[in-house]
Design a protein around this nucleic acid. Structure first.
Length: 562
DNA sequence: GCTTTTTGCGCC
DNA sequence: AAATGGCGCAAAAAGC
């Protein structure tokens, strides 16, 4: 059975059962909702229907309630609209309701696409735009029924059903991870900052170590003031010293022989740590030795997650030492090795690439096939591996710079199916057509400006460039979005299998961390292996010949993984 | 003066 | 000849 949960504008919740009997009081405050929900979850094992998990699930979590399964109307609507090639239409609940009823779109709803951060979201009950007399629960019920029908009418109902279920489960996992938090030792972080930067100073001031480095940079340039935080100032200073630079970026500076370069590079690295993950970040984001990021499921067009505040998906490697299991607990850290090329092999059904993907290090065996028997010493082997990697990344990203083009040509000879798969995707994008992931994530339509530029006569050069740019985007989309399909199913499966109280604490594109009591860590590792198997089978089919190695390591500290 | 854009760099 | 994809964030610059 299904239980629809709708937050009404007053902040209370309305509950409605589909396909079952449920004696429900009218409007429930959050605390009472949690009591009832815990019982229903236990006795009925329903699939919950949320207008938005991100918006409403925290009310259950705060009451200590976790649910097994759900359907997120907001995420489903976004996936369905894109899949139906209506990606430009509004995703609000009111708009979805109006479409389901065959009414004109509500006036308030801004079209999707531009600055969707502040647009009235699907779940926002304030100014919901629903017709008078229609409650959020009414709308949710109709939209849910409508969405189920749309799934069945899609080209691949089974894939889309799986995608929406996995995406909804991912949203549950994301909300739970925000509540549980990533174990984060503030004392270790503080000590590390002090070692690298000097004692803590008030915001706006340079810590001692940064001040010293800034002085050394200044000394290397003479008396004219130089601000190492100001790229323009740095470029001008080098110009006065007779070195013309296109920018002050680190990789540009590294090629320059000048006494200012070494302290400047060190300054930039430490200044970055200070501004992005310094004491201000620690104060704002870590409480009670937990970092609680806000994840945005489906926040990236390709289906990857984004994050809001705290830069949860950009934790620098140097800070992994701060991530430590609680006493008596372990971290089970696992990442999918070379996920994207393996996804490409599976998508394209490329037998040769699948054979290559059978080895644990894909790029090593790729090099063997590409440069068969050419050389054998270790240095050449490393060089070949690097070339094989560039070739593969160029295929997936559309790279043509340097030797990429010739390496790609060699890759095409050896793996025609895989390369033509991404090249078809690129060609579709260049023509303004949509492309899809394995489970049906669909690329957004190009903008009106793009169509005007590429469709009209005149600006030939601009048209070609825009066309190529969009082709690179769709080329990458099919791989990245299909990888997101696989990880969403993996996450959904893993979340369901984990033995309590082990729980997910981190997810980043192709990597998961589970916080587990010592004695369950091995069991968690088995769950992971089983989830990998399940994800591969459900996304790519039982006959999929591609291996997806995801070795889990059991550690006390994130920095010790791998 | 405030807001938006650019630069640069962290992650995959 | 050359233009490798996706993000978020802080600080400074640029725009209003």
């Amino acid at each position: 059975m299904h239980i629809i949960l709708a937050r009404e504008p007053e902040g209370t919740f309305a509950v409605r059962a589909l396909g079952g009997e449920l004696t429900v009081p009218g409007a429930l405050p959050a605390t009472e909702l949690a009591e009832h929900a815990a019982r229903w979850e236990r006795q009925l094992r329903p699939r919950w229907v949320f207008t938005s998990v991100e918006h409403d699930y925290p009310a259950l979590l705060d009451g200590g309630v976790r649910v097994r399964r759900c359907h997120d109307l907001a995420l489903a609507e976004a996936l369905l609209l894109a899949n139906e090639e209506r990606g430009e239409q509004s995703r609000t609940l009111a708009a979805a309701f109006a479409r389901a009823r065959g009414l004109d779109p509500p006036a308030e709803a801004a079209p999707a696409g531009h600055d969707d951060h502040d647009q009235p979201a699907l779940f926002d009950p304030r100014g919901s735009g629903l017709p008078p007399g229609v409650t959020v629960a009414d709308a949710a019920e109709l939209v849910f029924t409508e969405q189920c029908g749309r799934i069945e009418r899609a080209a691949h109902p089974q894939r889309l059903r799986l995608l929406i279920a996995a995406e909804s489960a991912s949203a549950l996992a994301a909300a739970e991870m925000s509540v549980d938090g990533l174990p984060w030792r503030a004392d270790i972080h503080d000590k590390l900052l002090t070692e690298l930067l000097g004692d803590r100073v008030p915001a706006g001031q340079r810590p001692r170590r940064l001040a010293e480095l800034a002085d050394r940079v200044q000394a290397a340039f003479g008396s004219r003031p130089v601000n190492p935080d100001h790229p323009g100032s740095v470029v001008r200073a080098f110009g006065r010293a007779g070195v013309q630079l296109p920018s002050a970026r680190a990789h540009v500076l590294r090629e320059v022989a000048h006494p200012a370069v070494a302290p400047l590079l060190e300054y930039k690295e430490l200044a970055r740590l200070h501004s992005a993950h310094g004491w201000a970040w620690l104060d704002a984001w870590v409480h009670g030795d937990r970092f609680r990021p806000v994840y945005v499921v489906g926040g990236v067009v390709s289906g990857r997650w984004a994050s809001r505040g705290g830069a949860a998906l950009q934790i620098p490697r140097t800070l992994r030492v701060c991530v430590r299991a609680d006493p008596g607990w372990k971290l089970v850290v696992a990442d999918a090795a070379q996920l994207e090329p393996r996804v490409l092999a599976a998508l394209a059904g490329d037998r040769t690439l699948a054979e290559v993907a059978a080895s644990a290090d894909l790029y090593d065996s790729l090099a063997e096939v590409m440069f068969a028997g050419a050389r054998s010493d270790a240095a050449a082997g490393q060089d070949d591996r690097q070339k094989a990697k560039i070739a593969m990344l160029s295929a997936m990203y559309g790279g043509t710079a340097g030797e990429a083009a010739s390496l790609l040509a060699l890759l095409r000879q050896r793996f025609p199916a895989a390369v033509s798969y991404v090249e078809h995707a690129a060609l579709a994008g260049e023509r303004g057509q949509l492309v899809r992931s394995r489970l049906g994530r669909t690329s957004p339509p190009p903008s009106a400006a793009w169509r005007a530029l590429t469709g009209g006569a005149g600006n030939e050069e601009g048209a070609r460039r825009a066309s190529r740019d969009w082709g690179r985007f769709t080329r990458n989309f099919v791989v990245q979005a299909s990888a997101a399909d696989w990880t969403a199913v993996l996450l959904a499966s893993l979340r369901g299998r984990l033995p309590a109280p082990a729980h997910l604490v981190f997810f980043q594109h192709d990597e998961v961390i589970v916080h587990s009591p010592d004695h369950l860590a091995e069991q968690v590792r088995d769950c992971l292996a089983e989830s990998v198997r399940e994800a591969t089978e459900r996304v790519f089919g039982a006959a999929c010949p591609v291996r997806f190695p995801m070795t889990a390591t059991v550690v006390d500290c994130y920095a010790d993984a791998k």
